[in-house]
Design a protein around this nucleic acid. Sequence first.
DNA 1: GTAGGGTTAG
Length: 698
Amino acid sequence: MEVTTVFGNGFQSVFCFSTIRPIKNSQPSTAAFATPPPQTVSTSTSSNGGINKHGEVRSKPTNVSRKVSRNPSVSHKTRESAIQDIQNSSELASALLRSGEVLKAQDLNVVLRHFGKLNRRKDICQLFDWMREHGKTNIASYSSYIKFIGRDSNSMKALEIYNSIKDESTRNNVSVCNSTLYCLIKSGKFESSLKLFNQMKQAGLIPDIVTYSTFSSLFKFVKEGLRRNAETFLWNLILFPEQLLLVGCVKAKGGYFKAMELVREIKSRGLPMDMVVYGTLISVCASNNQCEEAEKYFNEMKSEGHSPNVFHYSSLLNAYAVDGNYKKADELIEEMRSAGVVLNKVILTTLLKVYVKGGLFEKSRELLDELQALGYAEDEMPYCLLMDGLAKSGKLTEAKSIFDEMRQKDVKNDGYSYSIMISALCRGRLIEEAKQLACEFEIKYDKYDVVILNSMLCAYCRSGEMENVMKTMKKMDESAISPDWNTFHILIKYFCKERLYLLAYRTIEDMHRKGHHPEENLATTLVNHLGKTGAHAEAFSVYNMLRYSKRTINKALHEKIVHILVAGGLLKDAYVVVKDQAKSISQSVIKKFATSFMRKGNINLVNDVIKSIHSSGYEIDQDIFHMAICRYIEQSEKKELLLHLLQWMPGQDYSVDSSTRNLILTNSHLFEDHSITELLSKHYTVSKTNKSHERRTR
DNA sequence: GTAGGGTTAG
């Protein structure tokens, strides 16, 4: 078949999915935690050994600071204008020369923050260097500066600055520490931040609520898919221990539960919760469908005297969208109105989401009109919400008309609306239309992500456009977009439909390697197909994927795989399954397996197999014993195994029948006479007892 | 006089 050759040739290059998007570096950097380097820039703060409660230099001033302290009468106005001069100057160095001297550390911090706001990186660095050289830094300068440096993910530089701080009280200051930790976390260096955090604690840092909320930004990383790193880290963090216990529990729980642990930890330390932490919590609850919890934190926050801001409101509104609770949403909107909070674009869009989820399509349409009138419908978002809701409640025609309206109005398109429509059309079995739309997207846009590619793949697979399937996969590989669980599923289903079972197998193997677990039904279908087409070992491999990724699987599959393995002569593998899953396998299948094993299985395992199926409750028939004994006699070097079997049988109320006994007696030259006669007499006793027992029960 | 987060779409 032509199709097979296309894949046969293209498989390696097209299907390798070799390009995994790199995960942000989480390796601890050894250099990062080395002893602080010797200070190269001279600062007055440390060498003079004193900082007052404002973090300013006290006692024994340097030449520079002497000038300032000698000149305390520098008026507020003079300093103001000096600040302005530096901020507005295009030549920072000369401005500092001109106006810097009259300024104190806190004045220069104003400038530093000003540059920070404008992202004037070069000026920030230059100013800070100047401040250090002139001994005009305090705690605030360090915490701001470190934050700005780390903002560009330059965590190494931030750490360098931190390590260069000689003064102990500055280095142990909680804001300085929080700033530094923030930089590491922002650049994904979770492990390093934990290490540093422990070091800081040992040196005397007492973590505060900001420290906790700094670390809680990891919830975002969890959401964005840096799952494993962030989750492991979060768990370690929540336990907040010196020793990292219970790391193994990481996988068992989701981000939401970790957030709850974090709350418990904060509360048990007696730290007051603040607006920021509440904001994080409400948002985490909302995005984990924990509507009541979100509401609980929202009310708790209010009862503690905090007034919610627009973000708190929108998070809670989003929680109401989960089950389309428009009543509560409307109430909340009223509350916002009376609290004077502006109903912005996001709030109204989220309200639309609530209405859509609640099935209020007329009201949704009205709200969309309102959004349009307010100029809040210039991007896809509100249209997508409505389209998706309509499509998912079977109103495909209405969804299509929203899509058309959107295109007519020249709304900014990022591909979301296409993937909604393509998926909706696929679900509605309008495959040809789905394909058309996928093609249209390809012609018009050159922007892909895994979801749009999945929906295109889905359309092409459903319409059997092999060439387009190939092209899309290639695109995925070239754009370094990692296939996700959906991608694998779409492809495996498609390959099964096209009877390309080995290709489906390679795909599921790849899926497994990447840590995705296939759905049981799909894997079972594949096991069956592989079994039927003679790919017995591959079928077994898929069976094992299921077996080791799920706690329970359909019992029928165990039996099925035994059939397949017996048919393929993979008797040792079949034995493993029978031994582990005996309870799920019927007597007739055990018999079939045992018969095959007696005939063709590894002779050294024959006794093991007999004992094993016996102990699983299967009563072994005479012909099984007969076959086993025949094989032993044929291979006389295995006579020890035969003796062992004959010794074992009477103990379990088994005896050989007359034909088997005759067979043994004919070959008695193989044994020392007395041992075999003795054994057979034991068998005779057993068979007599059994027969009389049978008579009595009859 | 310094540090932390957060809302909507496939």
